[in-house]
């Protein structure tokens, strides 16, 4: 009997902890799965299904260090395009990425997807962060 009560209590605590954690997790999953669709329709043609890029024409999205270092710039790159010599995975690229017509929340979603796929694991990049970053684009 005592054992049963403890078991019920434990599982109750378990559920509480789980649902707290999962609220964050649900938000992340929402961003991630919308981001996946946006990636397919807006980025995959160039960057590839697995973020592999295309030879020396289009850089891969697999350089976690590059993405981390430029995290606060990524939203600007997506919104305004990118046309600078850059170094990704130790290789030089000097191509031209066109601006994407995406709303800030969509930029946040696609960036969350990119930064948590292809071997990257940088967590949620939410719309508030994106709005702040877009306000500071050069």
């Amino acid at each position: 009997m005592k054992f049963k009560i403890i078991a019920v209590l434990l599982s109750f605590i378990g559920i509480m902890a789980y649902s707290c954690q999962s609220e964050e997790k649900i938000e992340f999953m929402r961003y991630y799965s919308s981001g996946q669709e946006l990636y397919k329709s807006h980025c995959q043609n160039c960057h590839g299904q697995n973020g592999e890029g295309l030879a020396a024409l289009i850089p891969p999205l697999t350089d976690a260090a590059y993405l981390k270092q430029n995290r606060s710039q990524l939203a600007c790159y997506v919104k305004n395009g990118l046309k600078l010599p850059i170094l990704v995975n130790g290789k030089a690229y000097n191509g031209q990425m066109p601006p994407a017509t995406l709303a800030p929340v969509e930029i946040a979603q696609v960036l969350t997807y990119v930064q948590n796929s292809f071997g990257n694991k940088a967590g949620l990049h939410n719309v508030d962060q994106v709005n702040t970053e877009l306000g500071k684009c050069e």
Binding site: N45, C46, G48, L54, A55, L57, I58, Q96, P98
Partner: peptide, 15 residues
């Protein structure tokens, strides 16, 4: 060369 839509896909395949 500046085609933003299907050309990168085509040439990824042609590669």
């Amino acid at each position: 060369t500046t085609c933003p839509s299907i050309c990168p896909i085509m040439h990824r395949n042609m590669l």
